[in-house]
Design a binder for these strands. Structure first.
Lengths: 200, 200
DNA sequence: AAAGATTGGTTAACAGTGTTAACTAGACGA
DNA sequence: TCGTCTAGTTAACACTGTTAACCAATCTTT
């Protein structure tokens, strides 16, 4: 084989992620993955219980990568506002740098999400805790005003996700400049949570 | 038959919407819809070209209902800020009042979205135009500061959608009070676009 | 070295999927 | 009364996820 021969399990995940992102998720069939991997369809079941399990693994993988990316970039020694901005921008950066990974986190909807074990979200929560702590510091330092940091963290994340998903799902009016839209939205989200200093 | 006998076409749409919302969209099969409607699977093809077409019709239906709902509630005689708030709250109200309709708009992702004719979005655009005009009025009256109302309108919508979808998809931490989260987020979105009067 | 168990795959089959083609029974108009 | 249209039907095709049964190496143990 000409391709570098990585273990079948990883190969399956890679192929699945690309099929999912490029052809949408009705196009993702076990037989399709198998054909692409040059293997029989049932071989996939040696590594994954079923299609759901395969999808969940992809989600976990993505959540992990996103979390690591955020935690790596934030500098604990810098100021609170810098940390705050860093988390938000890291999140967005990851989404646009790895859209196929980001999208997967939200692609699989209620259908198989209901079957997705809640505990698997614990990894994702750690990133929230990070943001919550930053907000708490901000409040202590008088830089932010927020009586409920956890709700605030989720609100920020939700708004950010909205902005990102609109762009990635190409639901933006084509009269709008994408980069400008992203920058404006991020600024709005960030500034909205800082104590208002003055009308600029 | 005991049920009020509405035309098969409408019956199919109703059943599809409910199946989609309750059982997720892998559970939505032509045969399933047909069985529920007490009719053969192929009868659906008398009213819809294919499954895609059926889904697109559902989307259109929902976009229309959402647009009408917003346009009905906004009072052209009230002040700009009231109109601004009205549009935003109407949007959210609709989403939570008719989650199965709202979700459908965003449920069908890239997969069959790519095949969804762009012109069909024109109806949705009308609601943006409404918001854009309100923002333009706000800027004229010195109540808002925004050099690009179209981008602002999309940014507001995106953030709002993020908040709504997080709630509807039950991705909210269960320590968080849902209503509080929604109210806080909406307030943040609204206030962020108004000229900052004072630190409250 | 021989025997047994484990690993990593295979093929065949089942039930369910979207969709097409060909058909039929009834209503309506000429 | 004949023909056409309407609103449905059944049968079939190619595909789907998944299971069961099998096989050929390799690794472990005696």
């Amino acid at each position: 084989m000409s391709e570098k021969e990585l273990p079948l399990r990883e190969k399956i995940l890679d192929i699945s992620r690309h099929l999912l992102y490029n052809d949408g998720h009705t196009a993702l069939s076990m037989r399709g993955i198998a054909k692409e991997a040059g293997v029989s369809a049932t071989s996939i079941y040696l590594y994954f219980d079923n299609k759901d399990h395969l999808l969940h693994t992809l989600i976990e993988e993505s959540v992990e990568a996103l979390s690591v990316s955020i935690e790596q970039k934030v500098d604990a020694n810098s100021g609170v506002i810098a940390q705050f901005e860093s988390v938000i921008r890291s999140y967005a950066d990851f989404a646009f740098a790895h859209p196929e990974k980001y999208q997967i986190i939200y692609m699989v909807k209620s259908e198989s999400m209901a079957r997705y074990p809640k505990e698997k979200f614990r990894r994702a929560r750690r990133s929230y805790e990070l943001l919550v702590k930053i907000i708490e510091s901000g409040v202590r330092e008088g830089l932010m005003e927020e009586e409920d940091p956890l709700t605030a963290a989720y609100s920020i994340w939700a708004q950010l996700h909205g902005v990102i998903s609109v762009v990635l799902n190409q639901r933006l009016d084509n009269r709008i400049n994408k980069e400008h839209f992203i920058e404006k939205s991020i600024q709005h989200i960030i500034e909205g949570f800082l104590v208002r200093t003055q009308v600029s």
